[in-house]
Design a binder for these strands. Structure first.
Length: 898
RNA sequence: GGGCGUAUAGCUCAGCGGUAGAGCACCCGCCUUACAAGCGGGAGGUCACUGGUUCGAUCCCAGUUGCGCCCACCA
């Protein structure tokens, strides 16, 4: 039903539609030939692609290392080459692009450094999955062939990603594009590895690390996601006195001690004795260790040094052997009946065996505890003893904390700083070796006996007899940590380094503050220490944004089925609409809900802008010298005042990355002020012709010129298309940013237009209440116009379709608005009841306001303690309420009796 | 277990010690010399709850409840 109605309406409208080319010659006597080649609706698809290609061809996005302009450099958070960009990327790119485009317009040497991340484990997993579909594993191919295969994947994924970036309009310097596995970046990785190693900040050690039995590799602490999972806490009786509890029963096969708290009176006599470990026949000691909490469970803990980080420490303190009972796949290796079982098969098997011996004292009870999962594949992580490479983060993390503490680096929004300090000040050493194939091979060579013989960049390594390179690769974040300077040529002192390091801003999601930002800070400060503390920082500001969510605020996820491909929305509504929507939702550091409706609304905005410009061009708007303020009308001065106030507001908001607010301010100015009022007001002087029309054309041109400039960072395509048409100039990309001009602010004009708006709105409301169609002309007499509005009677009449009184004018209704009397000839009875209802309601409201104001002004404490400004404000409010009451009463009095 | 955040219109969110705001959705009217992707006019909120501070609290403070997030080597 509804659909049918809509369709009907559209068909009806199309049939009625008048031709696009309107002949204005009869009303615009002195206008130049109007540019009428803009279609009536904005068609993004036709505009965007050619514009982007032209921008790239002309090199507008490239940056010059040697220019005198101040630098403004943002490095792209390199997208993983695991597929394609999602809405979150589109969001991030919109923000970065807006910042960079604005600075470019402001005359900075602006560089948005593009590139991608090899994303070791993520990409390897993707390609392994592909292989699995062909029934192959990476081992079937072998290391070399597998890596070739990943490179093929990288080419494909990378191509797709850069295509998407072009669609988005990203103004990146393509000639500088980098990849984390480029030769130069690999060299940077090897160089810093060597330096850290030589400084004792990288070491190799046997430790308990997080092991993913599916990805087959070690993980760092932050690559583990903890979830509250339901498990079973089981109490096992070793003998009459010794009872321990565990959620991982299978690990008891590797126990090498039982621990109690040294202060625990109950068990003091047991310390130093041995108990028999069930199922194994091994005898293990009872040790005293402060790690044990006497309050928890029985106050006795089983100690499995090879499979639990705490137990490992206990074992170290008591010289206990570490018995590994599980292999890299999570399969039990301990001799006996459990050998060959997966860890999750072994667990119930062990419990069953224990129960058979009557060793289970408390039956399994549900127990919710925190379980670590691999952030890549969600497999439960297994703590595992193994030999790995680590970064000793102590001094590096301290430096990263200090840089923020002493203000060299600003984190925005500021409340994210507490998170920063909490993490940076409590960081554990970083496990950087990964048992993967895709990534930077660890630049360490071992001699025949496994001793380290050489560390360093490939090309500096002398070949030695029987030397072999470490098989493992580095954590992918190790190379990302160098991104702000490896992309600029580090370790060479390149002109690009000189010009663009430190970067001005880093824009990224708060979710990778630790993964990436902290590591960039650590390595940036370390690698560039020679530049001095002020210049060693990788960037002076970190601007954190939130996550894109669906229209209901839910996280987007494949399993939930609410993931949106940004390409779909760009196809449907255009890149500008998507960008505008994303910017409009971007409150600093908070998540951004986005729904298709909102993109539609942004598309409508772009179309509004398009049509406003089209109107201006049809009426001969042009950019030229504005007449002096004294030559301008009040509406002219008003819109210029509003324009420059908006420009100033936007500038201020950019400094704080307040994209949502600045976008909102632009939306409001464009639509509610410029289109709804100024354009409508302009029709009168344009129709009048002569100098009035000429003046109006210049104001229209001036406002649009500035408006399109200031919108360009957010909506580059539509603004470029319109602005080049308006001005005849080459491009907006490198045009000047519109500076706010304080001398254009004009309180008097703003007050005049506010009066005019109030008058117009009131008349419109009357007309609407009386059921008059908006287009229907009515004769009316206006009297008592204040001086400021006296010259604008024609505009007012035009806005509310009031004709001058003609022959036989017989007013049947009269309005009194702010001293202005409007007598209308409705040529018929008016709906007195409807009007009275409306006026009564308004009157009640006004009386309430008056009473409230009076109550305040009667309150002595209020008068004594409230600031003067507030009191004055209440007095004004009181006066306004009084005037309002007078106005309504006058109208009520003028109402004919029913 | 520790820390942080949040609660405002049907939805998503701004805001703020001095009469509650936006977008979308909704209702009424409409081709009105740019735009029906539009125009005009409306309706809609005890600003989570309870106390406190204040002349005045949606805003500040404390507590309660709900939701969300981050960190954590609780067997």
């Amino acid at each position: 039903m509804r659909t049918r109605l809509v369709r009907h309406r559209v068909a009806w409208w199309c049939a009625q539609r008048r031709p696009a080319n309107i002949d204005f010659t009869d009303v615009t006597d002195t206008s130049p030939a109007p540019a009428t080649d803009l279609p009536t609706a904005f068609a993004p698809a036709e505009v965007e692609r050619p514009l982007y290609e032209r921008w790239v061809q002309r090199g507008y996005f490239e940056a010059d290392d040697k220019s005198d302009r101040p630098p403004y450099c943002i490095v792209i958070p390199p997208p993983n080459v695991t597929g394609s960009l999602h809405l979150g990327h589109a969001f991030e790119h919109t923000l970065i692009d807006a910042l960079v485009r604005r600075r470019r317009m402001q005359g900075y040497e602006a560089l948005w450094m593009p590139g991608m991340d090899h994303a070791g484990i993520a990409t390897q997993n993707v390609v392994e999955r592909e292989l699995a579909r062909e029934g192959l594993s990476r081992h079937d191919l072998g290391r070399e062939a597998f890596i070739d295969r990943v490179w093929q994947w990288k080419e494909q994924s990378g191509g797709q990603i850069s295509g998407q970036m072009r669609r988005l309009g990203d103004s990146v310097a393509w000639s500088r594009e980098r990849f984390t596995m480029d030769e130069g970046l690999s060299r940077a990785v090897q160089t810093i590895f060597k330096r850290l190693y030589d400084d004792g900040l990288i070491y190799r050690a046997e430790r308990i690390i997080n092991w993913c039995v599916r990805c087959h590799t070690a993980l760092s602490d932050i690559e583990v996601e903890h979830t509250e999972d339901e498990g079973e806490l089981i109490s096992i009786k070793y003998n009459d006195e010794v009872v321990v509890a565990t959620t991982r029963a299978e690990t008891m096969l590797g126990d090498t001690a039982v621990a109690v708290n040294p202060d625990d009176e109950r068990y003091r006599h047991l310390v130093g004795t041995e108990v028999e470990l069930p199922l194994t026949g091994r005898r293990i000691p009872v040790v005293a260790d402060p790690h044990v909490d006497p309050e928890f469970g029985t106050g006795m803990v089983k100690v499995t040094p090879a499979h639990d980080p705490n137990d490992f420490e206990v074992g170290r303190r008591h010289n206990l052997p570490a018995l590994t009972i599980m292999d890299e796949l999570g399969v039990i290796t301990a001799h006996g009946p459990f050998q060959g079982l997966d860890r999750f098969e072994a667990r119930p098997a062990v419990v069953a065996a224990l129960r058979e011996q009557g060793r289970i004292v408390s039956e399994k009870r549900p127990y919710v505890h925190s379980v670590g999962h691999c952030s890549r594949c969600k497999t439960v992580v297994e703590p595992r003893l193994s030999l790995q490479w680590f970064v000793r983060v102590g001094p590096l993390a301290k430096a990263a904390g200090d840089a923020v503490r002493d203000g060299r680096v600003r984190i925005h929004p500021k409340d994210m700083e507490s998170r920063w300090f909490a993490w940076v000040d409590n960081m554990h050493d970083w496990c950087i070796s990964r048992q993967l194939w895709w990534g930077h091979r660890i630049p360490v060579w071992y001699g025949p006996n496994g001793e380290v013989v050489c560390v360093g960049p490939d090309d500096e390594v002398p070949s030695g007899e029987g030397w072999t390179q470490d098989e493992d690769v580095l954590d992918t974040w190790f190379s990302s940590a160098l991104w702000p300077f490896s992309t600029l040529g580090w370790p060479e002192r390149t002109p690009a380094m000189e010009k663009f390091y430190p970067n001005q801003v880093l824009v990224t999601g708060y979710d990778i503050l630790f993964f990436w930002v902290a590591r960039m800070m650590m390595f940036g400060l370390y690698a560039n220490a020679d530049l001095g503390p002020e210049r060693a920082i990788p960037f002076s500001t970190v601007a954190l944004h939130g996550m894109v969510r669906d229209a209901r605020g839910k996280k987007m996820s494949k399993s939930f089925g609410n993931v949106v491909d940004p390409m779909d929305w760009m196809d449907a509504y255009g890149s500008d609409a998507l960008r505008f929507t994303l910017a409009r939702g971007a409150n600093p550091g908070t998540d951004v809900p986005i729904g298709e409706d909102w993109v539609q609304a942004s598309r409508n905005f772009c179309n509004k802008l398009w049509n406003a410009t089209r109107f201006a061009l049809l009426n001969g708007a042009r950019v030229g010298e504005l007449p002096a303020a004294t030559e301008l009308s009040a509406p002219d001065r008003w819109i210029l005042s509003r324009l420059h106030a908006t420009l100033a507001e936007v500038d201020g908001l950019y400094e704080d990355f307040q994209f949502a607010k600045l976008t909102e301010a632009l939306y409001h100015f464009t639509w509610d002020e410029f289109c709804d009022w100024y354009v409508e007001l302009a029709k009168t002087p344009l129709a009048r012709g002569g100098t009035d029309a000429e003046r109006t054309r210049l104001v229209l041109g001036h406002v649009l010129d500035a408006l399109l400039r200031v919108l360009h960072p957010i909506t580059p395509f539509v603004s470029e298309a319109l602005w080049t048409t308006l001005t005849g100039q080459e491009t907006l990309v490198t045009a000047e940013w519109p500076e706010p001009d304080g001398s254009r602010l004009d309180a008097a004009a703003e007050a005049t237009v506010a009066d005019l708006q109030r008058l117009v709105t009131e008349v419109r409301r009357f007309r609407s209440d009386q059921g008059l169609n908006p287009g229907q002309r009515v004769e009316a007499r206006l009297t008592g116009l204040p001086e400021s509005l006296a010259g604008h009677e024609q505009e007012i009449r035009s806005l509310v379709r009031l004709d001058a009184p003609g022959e036989g004018f017989a007013p049947s209704a009269s309005l009194s608005i702010g001293g202005v009397n409007v007598e209308l000839d409705l040529s018929g009875a008016i709906d007195v009841a409807a009007e009275r209802r409306r006026l009564d309601k308004d009157l009640a409201g006004a009386r309430t306001a008056l009473a409230q104001a009076d109550a305040k002004l009667d309150n002595e404490q209020f008068l004594a303690k409230a600031p003067e400004q507030v009191v004055a404000k209440i007095r004004d409010r009181r006066t306004a309420a009084e005037n309002e009451i007078a106005r309504i009463e006058a109208q009520l009095a003028a109402l004919p009796s029913a």
